[in-house]
């Protein structure tokens, strides 16, 4: 196994006494696509922000743990040190492409400026052509003359990806890059990311709430719930043989999972919100196989016997509702 490009260990974020991210650990190997899956409040966006240096440290936030990227702990870097890294070796693609672009500047000027700052060794004109070709932009010359609001959602997202590629990064962190798009566009953008990842052998962290997306593009997956990683491993294994009841429930609740005459296997209740305190395993109040012990102690995140890379945090991992405690 090759050494990981990024190694996140026991990442915890505390905001005014509350911990929206607790003990998050995962690895990203060179050239690998890791999906981080979670719902609102699961801590997936904060985790992304921590590893891209975009977490604002004001307002009583504290960050613990480590995130080693090629030997450097990202959590220890100053803003100045981040400037040398972000956009050059690590890039970020936000969820809403509109807010990532300057609304009163033509695409050409924005892209040119970014190339001059991030990659001054490149000829801006030539590099722009290359980038637009990489993201399969139709009619690139016309697009360059447009303002962001004149582009459709799918084209804007392609432009955002082009921006992320300017510095030829080793790692791209994409926060729900396709959530705001239509299904057929989603498919195109996912294929594009996958293709770029192979061509440029970069790594990709893809944040999503859609297990279908994971199935389609991810090599590995980390499932987050209430600030913790509850299950992680090779995407194919985790989706085919999930061990955590939350992962199993998510798969079973998909509208395509049930026949038309069956009731969907909905998960009762809702994820804990800001400041809600749940004792023990955070999923235990909604879990169909929880026993008394589940609400007393937080289950450790442990490797699964005989399954390299597969880890799960559950006292009753792999059990069914009628199994004895």
């Amino acid at each position: 196994m090759t050494a990981a490009l990024l190694e996140v260990r026991d990442l915890a974020i505390e905001i005014a006494g509350w911990e929206p991210v607790v003990d998050v650990s995962f690895d990203v190997a060179a050239g690998e696509c890791v999906a981080v899956v979670g719902e609102t409040g699961s801590g997936k966006t904060l985790t992304c922000r921590a590893v891209t240096g975009l977490l604002q440290r004001r307002g009583g936030k504290a960050v613990r743990g480590s995130a080693h990227f090629d030997g450097v702990d990202l959590l220890e870097l100053s803003d100045r040190q981040w400037q040398a890294l972000r956009g050059r070796r690590i890039s970020f693609i936000p969820q809403t492409s509109m807010s990532g672009l300057d609304p009163i500047m033509r695409i050409r000027n924005q892209l040119q400026e970014t190339i001059r700052v991030i990659a001054p060794q490149d000829d801006p004109k030539q590099r722009m052509r290359e980038l637009l070709e990489l993201v399969h932009m139709p009619r690139p010359e016309q697009v360059l003359a447009l303002y962001p609001h004149e582009l459709s959602g799918g084209m804007r997202q392609r432009i955002m990806i082009a921006f992320a590629l300017v510095g030829r990064p080793q790692l791209i962190v994409a926060d729900e890059p396709t959530t705001a798009l239509d299904v057929t566009l989603q498919r195109n953008i996912l294929q594009l990311l996958k293709e770029l990842q192979h061509e440029t052998s970069m790594s990709l962290i893809l944040v999503t709430h859609d297990l279908g997306v994971v199935e389609e593009v991810a090599d590995s997956v980390a499932i987050m719930y209430a600030g913790r990683v509850v299950e992680s491993g090779r995407a194919a294994t985790v989706l085919r043989e999930p061990l955590h009841p939350y992962t199993r429930a998510l798969l079973a609740a998909r509208p395509f999972a049930a026949g038309r005459d069956q009731e969907l296997a909905a998960i009762g209740g809702q994820p804990p919100g800001a400041g809600d305190h749940v004792g023990g395993c955070p999923f235990s109040p909604r879990c169909s196989i929880a026993v008394g012990a589940c609400s007393e102690n937080v289950p450790p995140f442990t490797p699964v016997v005989d399954r390299p890379d597969h880890r799960v945090a559950c006292w009753r991992a792999g059990k069914d509702a009628d199994d004895a405690a």
């Binding site: 719902e39 609102t40 709430h209 859609d210 297990l211 939350y246 429930a249 998510l250 609740a253 998909r254 509208p255 009731e263 969907l264 296997a265 909905a266 998960i267 009762g268 809702q270 994820p271 909604r286």
Partner: peptide
């Protein structure tokens, strides 16, 4: 809605 809540609402509508 969150993925884990969507199924509840679909069942309710049905």
């Amino acid at each position: 809605l969150d993925v884990s809540v969507q199924a509840q609402i679909l069942n309710l509508l049905r």
